[in-house]
Every structure is written in structure tokens, then in C-alpha cells.
Design a protein around this nucleic acid. Structure first.
Length: 459
DNA sequence: ATGTGC
């Protein structure tokens, strides 16, 4: 397999064998040859063989191996002749990031970080299997799955204005709860407003640096400001939807999937019965995830209101695990496409892009660009990308050292699991600053603000 | 990511 240089930050694998389009990887010359890239690029090659794929099989700078499709991959399929695949979305449907801003400066809250973290930890269930102590009825769950954040606003979990600041207003219209299994609904019924574990987090952060003053001001951002970020998804409900439809496709679309180069790329024609049913269920799970982050954001907003008498503003909430029906210009022709972004963020012109770091490392607020539309269907990266697997992390790092380095950086942390701390330590990820620098140099997003954590809640 | 592994 030859990887050729297309330009300074774009690499190409020409079509060979059954590939319908080339592979394009957006990154610099240092990372392109690394081991974790090699596996991911092989997966992008496999994706390039799938029916109806348009233009290219794209890798963002943070790509690494995932189920079927790599994490950090973007692939768009013709809505009429193409496919939809659960592996191209990921198990955590609508895993995403929410950022909320306050009018506070760090100096005003620096003595209260522990108190904020303790209250967040006490009021929001975190960790593996985190549950609320109430169970929603099936009827209520279906309302949530169909109406997304509109349900939350109607039930006093937030302000009406929040709807303007969520991707798709927190409600994807193609959702249909009738295609979500009883089992998935059951799993979700006591998981609404819970963080989960792994790379999910709640952080209190400082705006460390503003890059574009005018744009920062437009969004009410200033250096020294306190903001908070939530990184979470659709919990067990989304996981169950993915599991259910992978099985449904296996049971019912055996012939259709005969030629896929990897079993994990199992898919359905988008316009088919099974394709549409997965699309409806996936969007229902996406709405659940929007509400999940809405409820956590609302609770933290109330904690800040109670402690400091300030109102927080939802700046933006974005997903980085989803397949979306979008119109894009391909070779001068407007086409309806089903754009799979798995560990990739939509980055339309002038739209907020959020890139979360991990524990000790920084997070970023960026803006999408016109140029991103002409590269990978208006997409950008979603994080730093792992360099160490969970097992490797446990072998090379230990809990005390990770905590000490957090302490040296003056970052407070509350966590449910020692394992998670080691598995999600900053050292386990690529340097987020360099990933962000690359996406800015490529031109798919522009930096608006860099955020540094002062307090972290982990599962 | 996940009531963490078929």
C-alpha cells in the first residue's frame, strides 16, 4: 500500500482492488507513518470499497483503530445508492461535547473548586453502570427519544434559549422511538443525566488563551473566564441500539453483506427497510444523548447559580459520533449524502467545533470554515486520539504518578475509579495542541479559545 | 464506549 503526499497536510492512497474512491488522511509528516495510523488507514481502505461511497474515505489527524471504521473517520454515501453502517457511527451514538460559559473569573472561584467538584460528583451519577434513582416510564422515554431537548425544556431541565445552541436544536427529526428495542429503552430509563466512564468527563476550565478576539467576544469568551465542559454520550441505550442493529443486519442482510472486506463493516442500503429503521433508532439514541448532556449541564448551571449567584450560558453542544443526512456539493453537483462521522465533528462555516482534551490536557473551542466543506464534507477532528491502549496504559503508568502530575499542574480531580484515571491519563493521548495546530493549518477549523482544566470529575 | 470478555 503506497501512501503518497498530496500536499503538506494531506496524504492519499490511490484506488486499488475494490476501492471505489481514494483514501485521504489529513495529518503531518511525522505522524503519518506511525503504527496506530497504519491500522486505521487499512480500515479506511476497507471503507472505500463500500457501496455508494462518494469522493473519498477520510481520516482526521486523530484517527486510530475502531470497530470496522476507524475513530476519526469520515465517509459519505449517496443517499439513493449508498449504505448506512453502525460501525461508521460507533457504539456510543452521539457521544459529544457541551460547553457552558459563566461570567466568573478564576480568582472569584479558586477557593471553591473542591466544593464545586464535590457537589457535581454528588448530584450527577458517574462511572460504569451509573444510574439515577428514578426510572422513567416507557411512554416518557419515547417522548425523550422523539423530541430530544424539547422534552428537557418542557420538563424544566434548562432554558428555551438552550435550543439555539445545540446541533440540530437538540432534536433530530428523523428519530423514531418505535424502532428502538424494549431492551434499549429499559437500559436508558434510569441512565438519563449520568456521565458514564472511560474518556467521558465533566471539567471546570479556564479560558487560557483567546485566538480571535472578535469571534471570542461574539461568543462572550474572555481570558481568565470560568467555563465548564461535559463530554458524554447515549450510555447503555445507544450501545444497545448499535448492538441490536448489528445483529438485525447480520440476521437479515447476509447476502447483501457477502462482499464486505471486514465483518465489522456490516451495513444496510440506506433506502432499505433495515437501513431506515437503523437510521430512525440511531437518531432516537442521538436525541437521548442530547438530553443526557442537557440535564447534566442544567444541574451544574444550578450549582453555579447557588454558589455564585450567576447564570450560565450554553455556548454549544455538538456530536462527534453520528451519521447525518446532508446536502453537499460533489464535483459541482448537489447531492443528498449520508455522512458518517465517527470520532469526527461537523465543522460547517461559522459553526462552533469543540475538541475535548483529557484530564490534565487542554480543550479547544474552534470555528468551522468554508474550506472544510471542500475537503471532508464539513468535518474536523474530535480529540487528541489515543496512542496507548488501555492495557498498555496500565502497564506503563500508575495511579499515584498520574495524580501527582495533576497536582503539580494544580488540577483537582474527583473520580470513581482508579483504573479510569490511569487508562485516561493525558499521556495516553496524542498531544491535543499539535492535533489542533494541524487542523488549523489544513484549514478545516480555526482556533477561537484554548481551555485549561482546574477541576475534573471522572467516572 | 458498554449492566466492560461468546
Amino acid at each position: 500500500m503506497d501512501i503518497i503526499r498530496e500536499n503538506k497536510y494531506m496524504w492519499k492512497v490511490e484506488k486499488f482492488k475494490n476501492m471505489k474512491v481514494p483514501v485521504y488522511v489529513l495529518t503531518d509528516s511525522q505522524t503519518i507513518r506511525s503504527q496506530e495510523y497504519h491500522e486505521a488507514i487499512m480500515q479506511l481502505v476497507n471503507v472505500a470499497t463500500l457501496p455508494g461511497i462518494v469522493k473519498g474515505s477520510f481520516g482526521m489527524p486523530d484517527i486510530h483503530w475502531g470497530y470496522g471504521f476507524p475513530i476519526g473517520g469520515v465517509a459519505a454515501f449517496d443517499a439513493d445508492s449508498g449504505i448506512i453502517s453502525p460501525g461508521g457511527v460507533g457504539f456510543d451514538i452521539n457521544c459529544g461535547v457541551r460547553i457552558m460559559t459563566t461570567s466568573l473569573e478564576f480568582s472569584e472561584i479558586k477557593d471553591y473548586i473542591d466544593e464545586i467538584l464535590t457537589r457535581v460528583y454528588n448530584e450527577i451519577p458517574v462511572g460504569v453502570g451509573s444510574r439515577t434513582n428514578f426510572k422513567l416510564s416507557v411512554k416518557e422515554m419515547k417522548k425523550i427519544l422523539n423530541n430530544g431537548v424539547y422534552w428537557a425544556i418542557n420538563n424544566n431541565y434548562g432554558l428555551a434559549e438552550d435550543l439555539y445552541n445545540i446541533e440540530d436544536s437538540g432534536k433530530i427529526k428523523y428519530a423514531d422511538a418505535d424502532f428502538v428495542s424494549d431492551e434499549a429503552i429499559k437500559r436508558g430509563a434510569d441512565e438519563l443525566g449520568t456521565l458514564g466512564s472511560g474518556n467521558h468527563f465533566i471539567e471546570i476550565q479556564i479560558v487560557e488563551k483567546v485566538f480571535e478576539k472578535e469571534n471570542a467576544e461574539r461568543y462572550g469568551l474572555f481570558e481568565g473566564q470560568i467555563v465548564y465542559m461535559i463530554h458524554s454520550g447515549s450510555r447503555g441505550l445507544g450501545h444497545q441500539v448499535a448492538t441490536d442493529y448489528i445483529k438485525i443486519f447480520r440476521d437479515n442482510l447476509k447476502d447483501w453483506n457477502k462482499k464486505i472486506p471486514d465483518k465489522q463493516l456490516i451495513n444496510a442500503p440506506f433506502k432499505s427497510k433495515y437501513g431506515q429503521e437503523y437510521f430512525s433508532a440511531m437518531n432516537a439514541a442521538a436525541n437521548f444523548a442530547f438530553v443526557n448532556r442537557q440535564i447534566m449541564g442544567h444541574k451544574i448551571r444550578n450549582i453555579f447559580k447557588d454558589l455564585f449567584d450567576v447564570e450560565s450560558k450554553l455556548l454549544y453542544d455538538i456530536t462527534h459520533n453520528i451519521a447525518k443526512l446532508e446536502k453537499h456539493n460533489v464535483d459541482g453537483e448537489e447531492k443528498d449524502l449520508i455522512v458518517h462521522r465517527k470520532g469526527a465533528t461537523r465543522a460547517f462555516p461559522d459553526q462552533i467545533v469543540l475538541i475535548p482534551g483529557s484530564m490534565g490536557s487542554s480543550s479547544y473551542i474552534l470555528l468551522g470554515t468554508e474550506k472544510s466543506m471542500s475537503i471532508a464534507f464539513g468535518s474536523s477532528a474530535h480529540g487528541a486520539g489515543r496512542v496507548l491502549g488501555r492495557r498498555q496504559a496500565k502497564r506503563r503508568l500508575n495511579y499515584k504518578n498520574v495524580l501527582n502530575s495533576m497536582k503539580e499542574k494544580k488540577i483537582k480531580i474527583i473520580s470513581k475509579s482508579k483504573n479510569t484515571i490511569v487508562e485516561e491519563a493525558p499521556e495516553v493521548y496524542k498531544d491535543v495542541d499539535s492535533v489542533v495546530d494541524i487542523i488549523e493549518k489544513i484549514g478545516i477549523s480555526r482556533k477561537i479559545a484554548k481551555l485549561t482544566p482546574v477541576g475534573v470529575v471522572k467516572g
